[in-house]
C-alpha cells in the first residue's frame, strides 16, 4: 500500500483526506457530543441532499448545493426554534426529511439518466479529488481557527451555557456560529464518508475518548488521533479487499468502541 501511496495521486488524496477529516470530525464531534447536538448534526447533513439534487438538476457542482442547503437548515432550525414551541428536535426531523425529499424530486426532474447517488450517500475516500481536498482544507482552517481563538469561551459555553451567558459571553451568537460550523463540516466530509455515515465518524472517536480523558482539550486531541487511526485502517482494509471505504471505516470504529468498552469495564 505504501507503493500505492507513493505512485498514485488518488491514494495521496485519500491519505490527506483522512488527515483533514480526522481533524474536522475530532473537533466538531467532541463539541456535538458534549452539546448533545448529534441528531441535529445528522439532520443538517441529511438536509444537504436536497442541494446535491438541485446541483444535478440545474447542472452545477452538487457540493455547492449541499453547502447552500445545510447552511440554510442550520440557520432555520435555531431561528424557528426561538419563535415557536415546536422544539429543535422536531424541526431537525422535518428539515432532515424535507432535504431528502427535495433531493429525490430534483433528481427525478434531472434530464437524462438519473445520476448515481451512492457516492454522496456512502462516500468513497478513494475517489476524492483535489477540489474536495481544497474544500476540506478551507473548512478545517475555519473550524480550527474559530475553536482556538475563543477556546475558553467555547469550553464555558459547552460546559454551562447559562453561566457563560451571565458572565457576558454571547452564547446566542455562539449557537449560530456552531450551527454554521457543523453545516460546513458535514458537507466537506460528504465525499469521504457520505451523508449517512458522517455522524458515526463524528461521534465514535469522542465516545471512546470520553472513557478516559480528564479535559476537553484531550477529548478533542484524542478524538482526532482515534479518527485518524480508524480512517487509515479502514482505508487500508478497503484498499486490499476492494470493499467500500466509508462503510469499512465506520465498522472499524464501532469495533474499536466495543473493544474499548470492555477494556473500560475490565479496569
Amino acid at each position: 500500500m505504501i507503493d500505492a501511496i507513493i505512485n498514485y495521486q488518488f491514494m495521496q488524496n485519500a491519505v490527506v483526506g483522512a488527515v483533514l477529516a480526522s481533524i474536522l470530525t475530532g473537533i466538531i464531534g467532541a463539541i456535538i457530543v458534549e452539546k448533545k447536538w448529534i441528531m441535529l448534526s445528522s439532520g443538517i447533513a441529511h438536509s444537504s441532499f436536497g442541494g446535491i439534487g438541485l446541483g444535478y438538476m440545474l447542472n452545477f457542482e452538487p457540493i455547492y448545493g449541499a453547502f447552500l442547503f445545510s447552511i440554510l437548515a442550520s440557520l432555520l432550525i435555531p431561528t424557528i426554534d426561538r419563535r415557536t414551541e415546536t422544539g429543535s428536535e422536531n424541526l431537525t426531523a422535518m428539515l432532515w426529511s424535507l432535504g431528502m425529499a427535495l433531493g429525490i424530486l430534483f433528481i427525478a426532474f434531472t434530464p437524462g439518466y438519473p445520476p448515481d447517488m451512492t457516492s454522496y450517500l456512502f462516500g468513497n475516500i478513494l475517489t476524492i479529488s483535489m477540489k474536495n481536498i481544497i474544500i476540506m482544507l478551507i473548512v478545517t482552517i475555519i473550524v480550527t481557527t474559530t475553536l482556538l481563538s475563543f477556546y475558553n469561551h467555547w469550553k464555558a459555553y459547552l460546559f454551562d451555557n447559562e453561566f457563560a451567558f451571565i458572565i457576558g459571553i454571547k452564547t446566542i451568537l455562539m449557537d449560530y456560529i456552531l450551527y454554521f460550523l457543523i453545516a460546513i463540516s458535514v458537507v466537506a466530509l460528504i465525499k469521504l464518508v457520505g451523508i449517512i455515515l458522517i455522524i458515526a465518524l463524528m461521534t465514535i472517536p469522542p465516545s471512546i475518548a470520553r472513557f478516559y480523558v480528564k479535559s476537553f482539550s484531550r477529548l478533542i486531541i484524542d478524538s482526532i488521533f482515534l479518527g485518524l487511526i480508524f480512517s487509515l485502517l479502514g482505508l487500508t482494509i478497503s484498499y486490499y479487499y476492494n470493499i467500500p471505504s466509508g462503510a469499512t471505516i465506520i465498522i472499524v470504529s464501532i469495533v474499536a468502541y466495543i473493544i474499548s468498552m470492555f477494556i473500560k469495564k475490565a479496569i
Partner: peptide, 12 residues
C-alpha cells in the same frame, strides 16, 4: 459528564 476538573470549573 463534561470532562473538566474542579479547578478549571472555578477558573471559568
Amino acid at each position: 459528564k463534561f470532562p473538566i476538573t474542579v479547578c478549571k470549573v472555578i477558573l471559568m
